[in-house]
Design a protein around this nucleic acid. Structure first.
Lengths: 149, 149
DNA sequence: AAATATAATTGAATATTATTCAAATATTAA
DNA sequence: TTAATATTTGAATAATATTCAATTATATTT
Protein backbone atom coordinates (compact mmCIF):
# COMPACT_ATOMS: atom_id res chain seq x y z
CA UNK A 1 0.00 0.00 0.00
CA UNK A 2 1.09 3.50 -0.79
CA UNK A 3 -0.83 5.58 1.78
CA UNK A 4 -1.78 8.23 -0.68
CA UNK A 5 -4.59 9.26 1.63
CA UNK A 6 -2.44 11.02 4.20
CA UNK A 7 -0.56 12.86 1.48
CA UNK A 8 -3.87 14.03 0.05
CA UNK A 9 -5.07 15.25 3.43
CA UNK A 10 -1.85 17.21 3.87
CA UNK A 11 -2.19 18.89 0.49
CA UNK A 12 -5.92 19.56 0.75
CA UNK A 13 -5.53 21.21 4.15
CA UNK A 14 -4.39 24.40 2.48
CA UNK A 15 -4.70 24.08 -1.28
CA UNK A 16 -4.59 21.90 -4.38
CA UNK A 17 -8.21 22.64 -5.21
CA UNK A 18 -9.77 24.87 -7.85
CA UNK A 19 -13.14 26.45 -8.64
CA UNK A 20 -15.82 24.57 -10.57
CA UNK A 21 -16.49 27.17 -13.23
CA UNK A 22 -18.97 25.15 -15.30
CA UNK A 23 -21.08 24.32 -12.22
CA UNK A 24 -21.10 27.93 -11.05
CA UNK A 25 -22.05 29.08 -14.55
CA UNK A 26 -25.07 26.78 -14.52
CA UNK A 27 -26.00 27.77 -10.97
CA UNK A 28 -26.08 31.52 -11.54
CA UNK A 29 -27.00 31.31 -15.23
CA UNK A 30 -24.09 33.23 -16.72
CA UNK A 31 -21.60 32.21 -19.43
CA UNK A 32 -18.63 30.27 -18.09
CA UNK A 33 -16.22 32.77 -19.64
CA UNK A 34 -17.78 35.53 -17.56
CA UNK A 35 -17.41 33.44 -14.43
CA UNK A 36 -13.83 32.68 -15.38
CA UNK A 37 -13.03 36.37 -15.85
CA UNK A 38 -14.51 37.34 -12.49
CA UNK A 39 -12.75 34.57 -10.60
CA UNK A 40 -9.37 35.47 -12.07
CA UNK A 41 -10.00 39.06 -11.04
CA UNK A 42 -10.68 38.03 -7.42
CA UNK A 43 -7.52 35.95 -7.46
CA UNK A 44 -5.39 38.79 -8.87
CA UNK A 45 -6.73 41.24 -6.28
CA UNK A 46 -5.71 38.74 -3.61
CA UNK A 47 -9.30 38.43 -2.36
CA UNK A 48 -9.04 34.66 -2.72
CA UNK A 49 -6.09 33.18 -0.86
CA UNK A 50 -6.52 29.53 -1.83
CA UNK A 51 -8.95 26.72 -2.55
CA UNK A 52 -8.93 23.86 -0.05
CA UNK A 53 -10.88 20.97 1.45
CA UNK A 54 -12.84 20.92 4.68
CA UNK A 55 -12.72 17.61 6.49
CA UNK A 56 -14.76 15.62 8.91
CA UNK A 57 -11.83 15.95 11.28
CA UNK A 58 -12.78 12.92 13.36
CA UNK A 59 -12.29 10.85 10.23
CA UNK A 60 -8.85 12.24 9.47
CA UNK A 61 -7.36 11.71 12.92
CA UNK A 62 -7.86 15.30 14.08
CA UNK A 63 -11.01 14.82 16.08
CA UNK A 64 -9.84 16.63 19.22
CA UNK A 65 -10.28 20.39 19.02
CA UNK A 66 -9.39 23.03 21.60
CA UNK A 67 -9.44 26.79 21.72
CA UNK A 68 -6.53 28.08 23.79
CA UNK A 69 -6.47 31.59 25.25
CA UNK A 70 -2.92 32.72 25.90
CA UNK A 71 -1.13 35.31 28.04
CA UNK A 72 2.41 35.97 26.93
CA UNK A 73 5.37 36.77 29.09
CA UNK A 74 6.32 40.38 28.44
CA UNK A 75 9.83 41.50 27.71
CA UNK A 76 12.71 39.44 26.58
CA UNK A 77 10.61 36.66 25.00
CA UNK A 78 10.01 38.40 21.69
CA UNK A 79 7.01 40.36 20.56
CA UNK A 80 3.53 38.84 20.25
CA UNK A 81 3.52 39.10 16.49
CA UNK A 82 6.68 37.03 16.17
CA UNK A 83 5.28 34.38 18.48
CA UNK A 84 1.98 34.37 16.60
CA UNK A 85 3.85 33.91 13.33
CA UNK A 86 5.78 30.98 14.81
CA UNK A 87 2.58 29.37 16.08
CA UNK A 88 0.97 29.80 12.66
CA UNK A 89 3.57 27.48 11.17
CA UNK A 90 2.44 24.60 13.37
CA UNK A 91 0.54 22.01 11.39
CA UNK A 92 -1.97 21.23 14.14
CA UNK A 93 -2.96 24.86 14.63
CA UNK A 94 -5.95 25.86 12.53
CA UNK A 95 -6.03 29.52 13.48
CA UNK A 96 -3.99 32.16 15.31
CA UNK A 97 -5.34 35.57 16.27
CA UNK A 98 -3.85 38.46 18.23
CA UNK A 99 -6.77 39.70 20.31
CA UNK A 100 -8.24 42.35 22.54
CA UNK A 101 -9.37 41.43 26.04
CA UNK A 102 -7.85 39.46 28.88
CA UNK A 103 -5.67 37.34 26.63
CA UNK A 104 -3.26 38.38 23.91
CA UNK A 105 -3.65 35.32 21.70
CA UNK A 106 -6.34 32.84 20.80
CA UNK A 107 -5.42 29.71 18.89
CA UNK A 108 -7.47 26.78 17.65
CA UNK A 109 -5.64 23.50 17.96
CA UNK A 110 -6.61 20.21 16.34
CA UNK A 111 -5.11 16.89 17.37
CA UNK A 112 -5.77 13.18 17.21
CA UNK A 113 -6.79 12.88 20.83
CA UNK A 114 -6.37 14.38 24.28
CA UNK A 115 -2.94 12.81 24.70
CA UNK A 116 -1.58 14.44 21.58
CA UNK A 117 -3.24 17.70 22.59
CA UNK A 118 -1.47 17.58 25.96
CA UNK A 119 1.91 16.90 24.37
CA UNK A 120 1.55 19.76 21.91
CA UNK A 121 0.36 22.25 24.52
CA UNK A 122 3.16 21.28 26.92
CA UNK A 123 5.67 21.80 24.14
CA UNK A 124 4.21 25.17 23.11
CA UNK A 125 4.16 26.51 26.68
CA UNK A 126 7.77 25.51 27.18
CA UNK A 127 8.95 26.85 23.85
CA UNK A 128 7.23 30.24 24.00
CA UNK A 129 7.11 30.71 27.74
CA UNK A 130 3.40 31.53 27.99
CA UNK A 131 2.58 33.01 31.39
CA UNK A 132 -0.96 31.65 31.39
CA UNK A 133 -3.23 29.55 29.19
CA UNK A 134 -6.93 28.75 29.36
CA UNK A 135 -8.23 25.83 27.32
CA UNK A 136 -11.74 25.36 26.02
CA UNK A 137 -12.12 21.94 24.47
CA UNK A 138 -14.84 21.45 21.91
CA UNK A 139 -17.40 18.86 22.92
CA UNK A 140 -19.30 19.23 19.69
CA UNK A 141 -18.32 21.09 16.54
CA UNK A 142 -21.48 22.41 14.92
CA UNK A 143 -19.73 24.50 12.28
CA UNK A 144 -16.18 24.94 11.07
CA UNK A 145 -14.72 27.12 8.34
CA UNK A 146 -18.27 28.22 7.44
CA UNK A 147 -19.26 24.59 6.91
CA UNK A 148 -21.97 23.02 9.07
CA UNK A 149 -21.04 19.63 10.48
CA UNK B 1 -22.77 45.66 -14.06
CA UNK B 2 -23.85 42.27 -12.84
CA UNK B 3 -22.05 41.96 -9.50
CA UNK B 4 -21.01 38.41 -10.08
CA UNK B 5 -18.30 38.85 -7.49
CA UNK B 6 -20.57 38.76 -4.45
CA UNK B 7 -22.36 35.70 -5.79
CA UNK B 8 -19.01 33.98 -6.22
CA UNK B 9 -17.96 34.82 -2.68
CA UNK B 10 -21.21 33.39 -1.37
CA UNK B 11 -20.76 30.14 -3.27
CA UNK B 12 -17.05 29.74 -2.53
CA UNK B 13 -17.60 30.23 1.20
CA UNK B 14 -18.72 26.63 1.51
CA UNK B 15 -18.26 24.86 -1.81
CA UNK B 16 -18.21 24.97 -5.59
CA UNK B 17 -14.57 23.94 -5.74
CA UNK B 18 -12.93 20.64 -6.66
CA UNK B 19 -9.56 18.92 -6.32
CA UNK B 20 -6.79 19.46 -8.86
CA UNK B 21 -6.04 15.84 -9.63
CA UNK B 22 -3.46 16.44 -12.38
CA UNK B 23 -1.48 18.84 -10.20
CA UNK B 24 -1.52 16.47 -7.23
CA UNK B 25 -0.45 13.60 -9.48
CA UNK B 26 2.59 15.59 -10.61
CA UNK B 27 3.35 16.72 -7.06
CA UNK B 28 3.43 13.28 -5.47
CA UNK B 29 4.49 11.44 -8.62
CA UNK B 30 1.63 8.96 -8.94
CA UNK B 31 -0.75 8.28 -11.84
CA UNK B 32 -3.73 10.60 -11.90
CA UNK B 33 -6.11 7.63 -11.93
CA UNK B 34 -4.67 6.48 -8.62
CA UNK B 35 -5.14 9.96 -7.17
CA UNK B 36 -8.67 10.02 -8.52
CA UNK B 37 -9.50 6.68 -6.92
CA UNK B 38 -8.17 7.72 -3.52
CA UNK B 39 -9.96 11.06 -3.53
CA UNK B 40 -13.28 9.44 -4.40
CA UNK B 41 -12.73 7.04 -1.56
CA UNK B 42 -12.19 9.87 0.94
CA UNK B 43 -15.33 11.55 -0.36
CA UNK B 44 -17.43 8.39 -0.06
CA UNK B 45 -16.23 7.78 3.49
CA UNK B 46 -17.31 11.32 4.31
CA UNK B 47 -13.79 12.30 5.33
CA UNK B 48 -13.98 15.25 2.97
CA UNK B 49 -16.99 17.48 3.59
CA UNK B 50 -16.47 20.00 0.81
CA UNK B 51 -13.98 21.99 -1.25
CA UNK B 52 -14.07 25.75 -0.73
CA UNK B 53 -12.15 29.01 -0.98
CA UNK B 54 -10.31 30.84 1.77
CA UNK B 55 -10.47 34.62 1.47
CA UNK B 56 -8.51 37.62 2.47
CA UNK B 57 -11.53 38.61 4.52
CA UNK B 58 -10.61 42.29 4.63
CA UNK B 59 -10.97 42.31 0.85
CA UNK B 60 -14.40 40.70 0.84
CA UNK B 61 -16.00 43.01 3.38
CA UNK B 62 -15.61 40.66 6.33
CA UNK B 63 -12.54 42.19 7.87
CA UNK B 64 -13.86 42.38 11.42
CA UNK B 65 -13.45 39.13 13.34
CA UNK B 66 -14.48 38.34 16.91
CA UNK B 67 -14.48 35.26 19.09
CA UNK B 68 -17.48 35.29 21.41
CA UNK B 69 -17.65 33.16 24.54
CA UNK B 70 -21.23 32.53 25.57
CA UNK B 71 -23.13 31.52 28.69
CA UNK B 72 -26.64 30.31 27.98
CA UNK B 73 -29.70 30.80 30.11
CA UNK B 74 -30.67 27.41 31.50
CA UNK B 75 -34.14 26.00 31.38
CA UNK B 76 -36.97 27.07 29.17
CA UNK B 77 -34.79 28.56 26.43
CA UNK B 78 -34.05 25.30 24.65
CA UNK B 79 -31.01 23.08 24.91
CA UNK B 80 -27.52 24.21 23.95
CA UNK B 81 -27.36 21.95 20.94
CA UNK B 82 -30.48 23.46 19.41
CA UNK B 83 -29.14 26.96 19.93
CA UNK B 84 -25.78 25.98 18.50
CA UNK B 85 -27.49 24.56 15.43
CA UNK B 86 -29.45 27.76 15.00
CA UNK B 87 -26.29 29.86 15.29
CA UNK B 88 -24.54 27.64 12.75
CA UNK B 89 -27.04 28.73 10.11
CA UNK B 90 -25.98 32.35 10.42
CA UNK B 91 -23.97 33.45 7.42
CA UNK B 92 -21.56 35.65 9.39
CA UNK B 93 -20.65 32.91 11.83
CA UNK B 94 -17.58 30.96 10.76
CA UNK B 95 -17.59 28.41 13.56
CA UNK B 96 -19.72 27.19 16.45
CA UNK B 97 -18.45 24.87 19.18
CA UNK B 98 -20.05 23.52 22.33
CA UNK B 99 -17.24 23.65 24.88
CA UNK B 100 -15.89 22.69 28.25
CA UNK B 101 -14.90 25.39 30.73
CA UNK B 102 -16.51 28.59 31.95
CA UNK B 103 -18.58 29.10 28.81
CA UNK B 104 -20.89 26.71 27.00
CA UNK B 105 -20.37 28.05 23.51
CA UNK B 106 -17.61 29.68 21.50
CA UNK B 107 -18.41 31.23 18.16
CA UNK B 108 -16.28 33.01 15.61
CA UNK B 109 -18.08 35.91 13.98
CA UNK B 110 -16.99 37.78 10.85
CA UNK B 111 -18.52 41.09 9.83
CA UNK B 112 -17.80 44.12 7.68
CA UNK B 113 -16.92 46.37 10.59
CA UNK B 114 -17.50 47.00 14.28
CA UNK B 115 -20.93 48.50 13.64
CA UNK B 116 -22.18 45.41 11.86
CA UNK B 117 -20.60 43.26 14.57
CA UNK B 118 -22.50 45.19 17.23
CA UNK B 119 -25.81 44.85 15.40
CA UNK B 120 -25.37 41.11 14.92
CA UNK B 121 -24.33 40.47 18.52
CA UNK B 122 -27.21 42.56 19.88
CA UNK B 123 -29.61 40.59 17.73
CA UNK B 124 -28.15 37.21 18.79
CA UNK B 125 -28.26 38.06 22.50
CA UNK B 126 -31.87 39.13 22.23
CA UNK B 127 -32.92 36.16 20.12
CA UNK B 128 -31.26 33.43 22.18
CA UNK B 129 -31.29 35.11 25.56
CA UNK B 130 -27.62 34.58 26.39
CA UNK B 131 -26.96 35.23 30.07
CA UNK B 132 -23.39 36.41 29.46
CA UNK B 133 -21.00 36.98 26.56
CA UNK B 134 -17.31 37.79 26.44
CA UNK B 135 -15.90 39.12 23.19
CA UNK B 136 -12.33 38.87 21.98
CA UNK B 137 -11.85 40.86 18.82
CA UNK B 138 -9.01 39.90 16.52
CA UNK B 139 -6.46 42.65 16.06
CA UNK B 140 -4.45 40.58 13.64
CA UNK B 141 -5.33 37.28 11.98
CA UNK B 142 -2.11 35.33 11.48
CA UNK B 143 -3.77 32.10 10.35
CA UNK B 144 -7.29 31.03 9.44
CA UNK B 145 -8.67 27.69 8.30
CA UNK B 146 -5.10 26.32 8.30
CA UNK B 147 -4.04 29.07 5.89
CA UNK B 148 -1.39 31.60 6.95
CA UNK B 149 -2.32 35.19 6.23
C1' DA C 1 -22.08 66.18 -24.20
C1' DA C 2 -18.93 63.90 -27.07
C1' DA C 3 -14.78 61.46 -27.44
C1' DT C 4 -11.58 58.41 -25.47
C1' DA C 5 -9.94 55.02 -22.50
C1' DT C 6 -10.75 51.25 -19.55
C1' DA C 7 -13.29 47.37 -17.74
C1' DA C 8 -16.58 43.64 -18.26
C1' DT C 9 -19.14 40.34 -21.00
C1' DT C 10 -19.40 36.80 -24.31
C1' DG C 11 -19.07 32.93 -28.19
C1' DA C 12 -16.04 30.03 -30.71
C1' DA C 13 -11.78 27.38 -30.73
C1' DT C 14 -8.33 25.04 -28.27
C1' DA C 15 -5.88 23.03 -24.48
C1' DT C 16 -6.12 20.72 -20.31
C1' DT C 17 -8.14 17.83 -17.06
C1' DA C 18 -11.36 14.61 -14.99
C1' DT C 19 -13.66 10.36 -15.55
C1' DT C 20 -14.74 5.80 -17.16
C1' DC C 21 -13.46 1.28 -18.09
C1' DA C 22 -11.03 -2.98 -18.10
C1' DA C 23 -7.06 -5.29 -16.71
C1' DA C 24 -3.39 -6.21 -13.52
C1' DT C 25 -1.64 -6.36 -8.98
C1' DA C 26 -1.84 -6.38 -4.11
C1' DT C 27 -4.14 -7.22 0.26
C1' DT C 28 -7.29 -9.48 3.32
C1' DA C 29 -10.40 -13.18 4.74
C1' DA C 30 -11.85 -17.85 4.60
C1' DT D 1 -3.95 -22.15 -0.39
C1' DT D 2 -7.85 -20.27 -2.30
C1' DA D 3 -11.26 -16.95 -2.88
C1' DA D 4 -12.90 -12.43 -2.24
C1' DT D 5 -12.01 -7.66 -1.94
C1' DA D 6 -9.42 -3.48 -2.46
C1' DT D 7 -6.01 -0.78 -4.90
C1' DT D 8 -3.23 0.59 -8.79
C1' DT D 9 -2.79 1.72 -13.50
C1' DG D 10 -2.90 2.85 -18.86
C1' DA D 11 -5.76 3.89 -22.70
C1' DA D 12 -9.97 6.07 -24.38
C1' DT D 13 -13.49 9.30 -23.73
C1' DA D 14 -16.08 13.01 -21.71
C1' DA D 15 -16.12 17.23 -19.48
C1' DT D 16 -14.03 21.44 -18.29
C1' DA D 17 -10.94 25.35 -18.15
C1' DT D 18 -8.57 28.64 -20.84
C1' DT D 19 -7.35 31.62 -24.63
C1' DC D 20 -8.55 34.88 -27.98
C1' DA D 21 -10.93 38.38 -30.40
C1' DA D 22 -14.99 40.95 -30.67
C1' DT D 23 -18.68 43.36 -28.49
C1' DT D 24 -20.80 45.97 -25.02
C1' DA D 25 -20.83 48.66 -20.93
C1' DT D 26 -18.78 51.90 -17.73
C1' DA D 27 -15.75 55.56 -16.34
C1' DT D 28 -12.75 59.42 -17.48
C1' DT D 29 -11.29 63.35 -20.00
C1' DT D 30 -11.82 67.22 -22.90
Amino acid sequence: MKDITSKLIGLFKRGYCTPQIARIAKKIKEPSTTIHYNIKKLEKEGAIKTYKAVFDYKKVREGHCTYILINLNKGKYGDPEEIAKELAKHDNIESVDICTGEYELIIKLRSKDIDEYYEILKHLIKKHNFSKTVSMTSLKQMKTEFVEM
